[in-house]
């Protein structure tokens, strides 16, 4: 590691092929970790009647694992266009603050470099780009490289999952279907910020979803009702705590928006 010049005269953001390749290479250790989640999405897609082409197309252009899994859980025949879009919105709205948090790089990009890089942004590429930025990195190609590397892995994993699912018929009620609950539970462990912040909202979200489910409300309603109520309670608790506790130092509340628990997701 050569140390950067302390008075680097040029702090301009660059976008190079080398940066893209380095980002893509940095994803290789993550490929194996993505495999089970990708397999689950592929297998569920097959179980819900999606063809191989439809499954791979969804992975290629939606490219958002948790949203795909949730939409597939709500899947019906004919395809539930509104419910799928709603599922994607609720799961992926978390990505809205990520681009703003990376403005230091993105503001310097134009055209396909900007809008194409944004298209590949996922939790992991966000987390790795933040780390790279904090370490003084100024090659914005890195963000695109990580996004593309994970995209290839995602396509492969879901494709393999679909092939496996159609080769071996998995009967309903099989333990394998617990994998989608397991995936969301382990994501929740990564999101957990402590009982004060999360316990109330999560319990309310869960209980309301169960109640709406028992009341026989149709598919996305229990999920959405529980989610919105839980999130609103969380926001209320957070703002109430902020109002009670005066900020320790000026400006500390105005930190950049954070993505959910950087570092733990596929």
């Amino acid at each position: 590691m050569e140390g950067p010049a302390p008075h680097a005269p040029d702090r301009r953001v660059i976008f190079t092929r080398a940066g893209i390749l380095r980002g893509a290479r940095d994803t290789l250790p993550l490929w194996l970790g993505m495999l089970p989640f990708g397999l689950v999405v592929g297998i569920i897609a097959d179980a819900k009647g999606l063809t191989f082409l439809e499954t791979v197309l969804m992975s290629a252009i939606v490219y958002a694992g948790a949203a795909q899994l949730l939409a597939l859980e709500l899947w019906t025949d004919p395809a539930p266009i509104g419910a799928a879009a709603l599922a994607a919105l609720v799961v992926n709205i978390r990505m809205a603050p990520m681009g703003a948090a990376l403005a230091g790089w993105l503001d310097r990009l134009r055209g396909w470099r900007l809008w194409g890089t944004l298209a590949t942004m996922v939790d992991h590429s966000f987390a790795m780009a933040v780390r790279e930025q904090r370490a003084g990195g100024r090659d914005a190609g890195y963000l695109l490289g990580v996004g593309l590397g994970l995209w290839v892995a995602w396509l492969l994993c879901t494709a393999i999952g679909h092939l496996a699912g159609s080769a071996v018929r998995v009967p309903p009620g099989h333990p394998l279907y617990f994998a989608s609950v397991a995936a969301f539970l382990s994501i929740m462990v990564g999101l957990w910020r402590g009982p004060r912040v999360d316990l109330g909202p999560w319990v309310v979200a869960g209980l309301l979803a169960v109640a709406a489910h028992r009341a026989g409300l149709p598919a996305p309603v229990p999920l959405l009702g529980g989610t919105l109520a839980g999130a609103a309670l969380g926001a209320w608790i957070e703002l109430r705590d902020q109002a009670r506790r005066p900020p320790p130092a000026a400006g500390s509340a105005a930190s950049a928006p954070q993505g959910p628990a950087p570092g733990d997701r596929g």
Binding site: E73, W202, G234
Partner: peptide, 25 residues
């Protein structure tokens, strides 16, 4: 606005809780 900002941050956790609760219960 701060409330919307905070709600966006709470959305994923609440969503997954609402998803896993019915099958677990």
């Amino acid at each position: 606005p701060p409330f919307v900002d905070a709600m966006l941050r709470h959305l994923p956790g609440a969503l997954f809780a609402a998803y896993v609760a019915p099958p677990l219960v």
